[in-house]
Every structure is written in C-alpha cells, then in structure tokens.
Design a protein around this nucleic acid. Structure first.
Length: 667
RNA sequence: GGGGUUGUAGCUCAGUCGGUUAGAGUGCCAGCCUGUCACGCUGGAAGUCGCGGGUUCGAGCCCCGUCAGCCCCGCCA
C-alpha cells in the first residue's frame, strides 16, 4: 500500500477532548485506527490517540469517492492523519467520552499500515508470554497506559514532595563495587582490569551515607537497583527505589517526611489515609500477626493456646507445653458462619498450604451448624473445648486453626493463613460480623514496624548476619548486647508496611567508626576484611560523620498497590519473566567470542593452522580433531583444494579463516 | 535448588475410555450491507496438538525427558 506523508499536517485537538461545543469546527487529528465498521456506503472508524477515542465517519452520498475507498482500505492499528468537521451524532454513544460527536471526514492520510496483531488489545486474559514478547503492543492497552501514567504521576509527585522539603537529588554510580552479604550481585567484568569486576548496585546505600558526611543533609534519588535473586510476583531483578537519607535525625523525623508523601500518593488514587501511621514493634507483629509485614486490614490475631493442652492426651500439643516456651501451640480463630461451614476440601487446601510452609499438617476445630468438628476431636473433651472457646472468645460459629512448633515455624504458617483465609472468607461471608475479620478490602492500611532485631543467627554461615544491613545502628538501650547476646539486640530499623506488603525500609545508621567496627566484628567481618571492603566508609566515619538515617521505598511495589494490581510487571514498561528473561529482546543472550576475550572471560589460547587438501597432512602440532573439524567446515565454503589459515580458540571453535589466495571467512 | 500448574488454529479455549478427516468462538481474507459503536449477513483460508523419545495395531490423550509462561518454598543485607 502506498503510504501518505505526514508532511505539514498538524494536530489541532486531542481525540478524547472533542465535545458538542466543537461542532462545526474543522479539526485535524492523529492516531491509530482502533476498528473500522464498514456498512457499505457508510463507514465508521474509531481513532485512538494517547488521550482518547473519537469516531470518524464518511458516507457515499457526501464523501469524495477516493476518500471513501481509502477509508475502506484501513485496517485495525493503521496510523492515520484525519481532517474533518465535528458534527453532532444521529445516534449518540453514552459509553464514550466523545460519544455525542463524530468527525465527518474531509481528508485522510494513511501514514502507516499494520499487520494483524498477534493478540487483541481489548481482551483480558491473553497469555502473558505473548504480551511480554510483543510488549510494545501490550503497552497500547488501556490498562497499561493507565498504569504507566500513574507511575509517572507518582514519580513526579514524589520529586515535588522532596523538593518542597529542600532535599537534593543526586545520581550515584551504576558501576560500583561488590559488597559481601545481602543479595547476589549482578557483575560487570572490567576490560581494562583483567579478572576484576564492577557490581551493579543493590542500593546506593553507602553513597547516600557518604553524601551525609559531605554535608548534603537531605538526599533523595529515584534510582534503579539490581539484585540477582529469584523472582516473585512482587519482585524483579531490577527495580526502582525512592532512596532517602537525612542528617541529624531520629527515626521519627524520617517517618515524618515519608508519611505525608504516602497520604498524597493515596489521595492520588482516591484513598483516604491519615498520618501518623501506627507503630508496631517487630516482636508484637510476629506475636499477633506472625509476620513482619502484617496486613492490618485483617484484625484477626494469633493467640497462644499452649497452656490449654498442658495435660491433654493430644501428644503433639502437650509436648509443646513441656518445652517451656521453646515450642508453642498457637491458634487463629475466624468467627462467622462462612468459617464455621468451610468444606473439607477448602480445609485440605489450607492444610496443603500449611505443609508448604513447613508444617506437618493443619489441626483445626470448627464450630458449625452441626456443632464441633475437629481433626483432633477425640482429645477435645468438653473441659478443653470450653477452655479453648473461652480463650478464643468463641460465640457462635467459627473456625480455629492451630500450629505447633518454634515461634518461627508457627508464625510462618499462621501468618500466611491469617490473611489468606480471611480474604477467602470475606469474599463469601454474608455475615456482617465479619467486619471484625477483614475490615475493608479496598482500604489502604499503613503502619510502621519498628525495633527489628539487629542481627540474626544464620545456620548456613554459622554466624550472625545483619537483619537490615551492617550499617544499621543498634538500639542505644541494647548497645551492650552487641558482644554479650547479639541476637537480643534491637536495631533502629523500621519498615513501612501497606496491606501486607513491605513498601519501604530504613534505619538510623551507625555514624562512628568505633560502633561500626563492633558491628562488623559481631557479624564476623574481621578488621582486615572491613578495611579492604569498607575502608572508604570507615575513613568517612572518622572525618566528622553526622548522625544520619534514611529509608528506601520500593517504587514498583508501591505503584502496584496504588494501581490496585497484583503483579509488579503490570507497572513496569519492560519487565522480566519469572526466569529473569526479557521475552521481547530475548535478553540475556550470547555474545561474540571477541567480546568475551576482551573482557578476559575466556582464555586467549587461539591457535592458527594451515588447512587445505594439499598442505593439511603436513600441518605440525595442534589438535588433530580440530584440524579435521576445520577442514570440514572450510570445505563447505570453498573448494577443497584451497589452502589457508584457520584460527581456533581453546575449545576448537573457529574464530576466523582465510584462504591464502582468496577470501576471508567469518564465523 | 525444590514444589505446583499451564502449553491444541493469529488469539481464548473444548477435545469423553487411547480409535474415522482435531472442533467452537473470535480474529484474518473475500462478497453483500446507509447509523454502526463487540455492526450484521454469506462464504473461505487457517494446525509441527511446545519439543524429543518411548509404550501401542493405533497417541492431542498413557510413560520418560526437555523447553517455555505463571504461582509458591528456599533466596531476596
């Protein structure tokens, strides 16, 4: 098809802006054809641009025949420039913003054609692999356009927020140094320094601290971070942080800067949130909700039931009572009819989930229409049942589930099932009593989880590791524990949690060299290693580092929640798959051997041989098998009689070849 | 590293107990159609049943392996 040129055609209006008030005006529009409706001698076309959709029309009795023919040739997603007169429609479409008007075409340019799309833009439920392969088309879809716009608004609002508070925006290096601990680094080999590597930043942590030492008392950056770990629905290998650091602050000061930002962002999507947000200690969060990022839309709390089974015949539970707190029986009670009438099948599914979380099973007690049902009913004699009902405040119907084990084990199981079951029940429960269970699915419930432990024991490394990161300040009240009982030492770290997602985390940092050295020692980083890896930080702390602290927000996750979607890929323009591939570009991919040699990633052990029918037998040294392969490959390209030189690498791959008299071949 | 799940026409899916020529809707192509907006009507083309192997007289269906997408566990200071 012959294409028209854009030429000096200029848009006069955005498609979505046209209204009755424009009637009579001649307008020039640009965009993509969403769909043609060809009724024979009457043709409609919906023209889409970034701002909306408007209907174009032409009919046989009034339109130029050439124009009409051209219009009929248009297919979905053709790129068009249209000129026409705005007119009131005969049949209005109340479902369209521009549904009162249509554009009676006077001229049409086809700027580009489009092959039929591999998937329809209107449909939901297209396979995600397809969408990711043709992401540039996927991004034409309304939902993703909205998400990208929201993301842009969030970034812009965030920048303005910090700017108003006199923060300075920085750019820190992408090529930086690998650091121990934390996530696996993405590495970049150095060409200039054989055998040495840059690492992509897991976060600009040290740089922002050093900028505090430099005197930039308020730092902000919206930056890309990289962690080479396995993915999840809310995790990508490269992600964006809103990175913040401040000098001369307590954690309340940092929180006080973040909270109003969250209020504004929530307002952006029509959610009302009020600051200050509640604070919950890590210990209470784990005890009541079994999670360090509890979803407080659900009010159900974990309760301790260990003592109720101290003299029970149920060995599994009684044994826990004998351990004096090492192992406990913990339980969750979901009140209501829906919980009391949960099917065996549903309970089995929850049990399967519990198993995946490391539990042996999922003991339950259910009070339904037919009275008590329980997986350990024979041990629930009336006395124990009454005590249990009293402990759990059971009135009427409901479901109690149990977990037994160490706090870490039971928290994991109950923490996960708490929200899972509550969410399921709230979808089916007609009973308003459930409001105590899951208040408002659509609400935004923020909180701060504070007083995280400083370090935790790592079985894998047989030593303590930093919970947050090694630069986090110990809680001043617990400083002495650093050497005596590090596992009990609290830190000045805090996480911002929204609806069960960690959307941010930060801490007050260590700002004196002595404490930093003690911290390194606690987590098994010796003097020499600390010097080698963080010498610059220790130096900086020695030259007048101010007390400082900050936080980083996970922008992708935040936008995901603001957009109300359940997958981070929906708010990233070009995301990776769960296997960390880009289906569109097919990255990562192989590179030329030349590049590998430049980067010193393969040995430069190339060997050159003379090949050809005449000289082949007289070639000296080298690997006979390689010579044979080379001869075979060369003979496919040039007559067997030719003679030439072939260069191999150490694995027998041909790097290049040339005949003595003729052409050079590339491999 | 482990577990689960999905893979059939461009797309979304059905395909019974292993048995004739693998179907539907939609999209695409062609024709008709003056008020459509998921336009309508008629006709047509369209398949490496993800890939490889095996069992069988016979495999989309059963077995083994493998690749890819998604979800979860481990991991993610």
């Amino acid at each position: 098809m012959k294409l028209d040129l854009l030429g000096d055609f200029q848009r006069t209006h955005r498609n979505g802006d046209l209204r009755l008030e424009h009637a009579g005006q001649t307008v020039r529009l640009l965009g993509w054809c969403r769909r043609v409706r060809n009724l024979g001698s009457l043709v409609f076309l919906d023209l889409r641009d970034r701002w909306g959709l408007v209907q174009l029309v032409a009919k046989e009795e009034t339109a130029d025949p050439e124009l009409l023919a051209k219009l009929k040739a248009v297919r979905s997603e053709f790129v068009l420039a249209a000129e026409g007169v705005v007119a009131e429609r005969e049949n209005k479409n109340p479902n369209m913003a521009t549904g009162d008007v249509e554009i009676r075409l006077t001229a049409l340019r086809i700027l580009n054609t489009a092959a039929p799309l591999p998937f329809p833009l209107e449909d939901e439920g297209v396979g995600e692999d397809l969408r990711l392969t043709y992401r540039f088309l996927d991004l034409r879809r309304e939902q993703l356009q909205r998400n990208m716009l929201l993301r842009s608004e969030v970034a812009s609002l965030t920048r303005n927020h910090f700017r108003e508070l006199d923060f300075i925006e920085f750019e820190t290096p992408i090529l930086t140094k690998s650091t121990p601990e934390g996530a696996r680094d993405y590495l970049v080999p150095s060409r200039v320094h054989a055998g040495q590597f840059f690492a992509l930043p897991q976060s600009p942590q040290l740089f922002k601290q050093l900028l505090q030492v430099s005197g930039f008392e308020r730092y902000v950056q919206i930056c890309r971070c990289f962690r080479d770990e396995d993915l999840r629905a809310d995790r990508q290998p490269e992600f964006t942080q809103v990175d913040v650091e401040m000098s001369f602050v307590r954690q309340e000061d940092v929180q006080g800067v973040i909270e109003p930002l969250m209020v504004k962002l929530a307002k952006l999507v029509g959610k009302k949130v009020s600051a200050p947000f509640p604070r919950l200690s890590y210990r209470d969060a784990m005890e009541w909700y079994g999670s360090d990022k509890p979803d407080l839309r659900c009010g159900v709390r974990i309760q301790d039931a260990t003592s109720l089974f101290a003299s029970s015949g149920f060995n599994l539970f009684r044994a826990a009572a004998d351990t004096r707190g090492q192992r406990r029986v913990r339980t969750l009670f979901f009140p209501g009819e829906a919980a009391g009438s949960l099917s065996r099948k549903a309970l089995d599914a929850y049990q399967e989930q519990a198993r995946q979380m490391g539990a042996g099973g999922l003991p339950y007690a259910k009070w339904g229409k037919d009275g008590l049902a329980s997986s350990f009913k024979k041990f629930l004699d009336p006395g124990v049942e009454a005590a249990l009902k009293d402990r759990l405040s059971v009135e009427g119907e409901g479901l109690a589930i149990f977990a037994v084990g160490t706090d870490a084990q039971t928290s994991k199981v109950l923490g996960d099932l708490r929200t899972r079951i509550a969410l399921d029940l709230s979808a089916t429960e007609p009973d308003p009593a459930l409001s105590s269970l899951f208040h408002d699915k659509h609400a935004f419930v923020f909180l701060w989880v504070v007083d995280f432990p400083l370090v935790e024991w790592s079985e894998e490394n047989q030593g303590f590791a930093a919970c947050h990161h090694p630069f986090t300040s110990p809680h001043p009240d617990d400083l002495d524990l650093l050497e005596t009982d590090p596992g009990k030492c609290r830190s000045l770290a805090y996480d911002l949690v929204l609806n069960g997602f960690e959307v941010g985390g930060g801490s007050i940092r260590i700002h004196d060299a002595d404490t930093q050295s003690r911290m390194f020692r606690t987590i098994g980083i010796g003097e020499a290693e600390a010097r080698a890896k963080f010498g610059f930080l220790l130096d900086a702390l020695a030259f007048g580092a101010p007390p400082h602290g900050g936080l980083a927000l996970g922008l992708d996750r935040l936008v995901m929640l603001l957009a109300g979607v359940d997958n981070i890929r929906e708010v990233i323009a070009f995301p990776k798959t769960a296997q960390a591939r880009c289906l569109m570009t097919d990255a990562p991919g192989p590179v030329d051997e030349r590049q590998l040699r430049d980067l010193h990633l393969i040995q430069d052990a190339k060997q050159t041989y003379r090949v050809g029918a005449v000289f082949f037998e007289s070639v000296e040294g080298g690997n006979a098998e390689f010579r044979g392969q080379a001869l075979q490959q060369i003979s496919q390209l040039t007559p067997r009689q030719a003679q030439g030189l072939v260069t191999f690498d150490s694995r027998g791959q041909i790097l290049d070849a040339q005949t003595l008299s003729g052409p050079t071949f590339e491999f």
